[in-house]
């Protein structure tokens, strides 16, 4: 049934993504594709996989943005512009429009933990849920003709045949920089909730009224490169040298 469960769900499973830490390596993209092409539902197909016009279904993609402060300049590494790598997958919204627009009941939000899923045996591939999602979290698989989306690795997180350490989403398990975190955002005492509270975690496009579960942690304020310049160009300056170096400095000045 594509009515949303009574809000809030007892648990709100989701991700917290740290934009300060993500290095844009795309390892989560690959591990997501690998796990989910053999896991829940139809495989994630590629079209023209070895040709010039390759494309395919992905549930998690990394965008890269340049952010330029007011009046700032882009001068390579020395300018004020900064690069932010931006992983994006389904946000498992509380008011998920992709669920309510579904005409067949294929799209649903689980009442117990808030995970948004697609029952592929009911999906007619009309694409309306992808239209309704402002975040681009849903992609139609062109081979299977059904809608694919992040399952929050529902086939891992409850999977008792896996070691406990692996019972987290594939992208979180893989991230070499530890930029992705998984947990219950409905529990204020959980690690992810505390992280959100401490770092000022925020929603994407709150104006769309979707109330996303996933949160993003902002990049920390950056020290401008110019501020580090003093120590970086000490090569010409021997002020404050002591002991052997002071003697060597003096001797070399004399000869």
């Amino acid at each position: 049934m594509t009515l949303l469960p009574s809000s809030p769900t007892p648990r709100k499973l989701g991700l917290v993504i740290d934009l300060d830490v993500c290095v844009g390596c795309h390892a989560c993209v690959i591990s997501c594709k690998e796990w989910n092409t053999g896991g829940y539902g139809a495989a994630l197909s590629d079209q023209d996989p070895y040709g010039a016009d390759v494309s395919g279904t992905f549930l998690n993609r990394i965008h890269t943005f340049e952010v330029l402060p007011e009046g700032g300049q882009v001068i390579g590494e020395a300018g004020e512009a900064r690069i932010v790598h931006f992983p994006k997958s389904c946000l498992h919204c509380e008011d998920a429009p992709c669920v309510t627009v579904c005409p067949t009941g294929a799209s649903y939000k689980r009442a117990e933990d808030g995970i948004v899923l697609v029952d592929e045996s009911k999906c007619i591939g009309c694409g309306l849920c992808a239209w309704s999602c402002a975040y681009g979290a849903r992609e139609m698989d062109l081979a299977a003709g059904v809608m694919k989306k992040c399952t929050l690795c529902v086939d891992r997180v409850y999977n008792e045949t896996l070691k406990e350490v692996d019972r987290i989403p594939s992208c979180v398990r893989t991230c070499p920089a530890n930029a992705r975190h998984y947990g219950d955002l409905g529990d204020p005492g959980s690690d992810v909730s505390r992280m959100v509270a401490e770092r000022g975690g925020y929603d994407l496009m709150p104006e769309q009224g979707t109330r996303p579960t996933n949160k993003y942690l902002p990049p920390r304020a950056r020290k401008p490169l110019a501020a580090s310049a003093g120590s970086a160009v000490l090569a010409e300056n021997t002020d404050g040298a002591k002991g052997f170096f002071a003697w060597l400095d003096g001797m070399l000045d004399r000869i």
Partner: peptide, 8 residues
Amino acid sequence: IGHVRLFE
């Protein structure tokens, strides 16, 4: 932080 532009 500032003006956001797609880089890649």
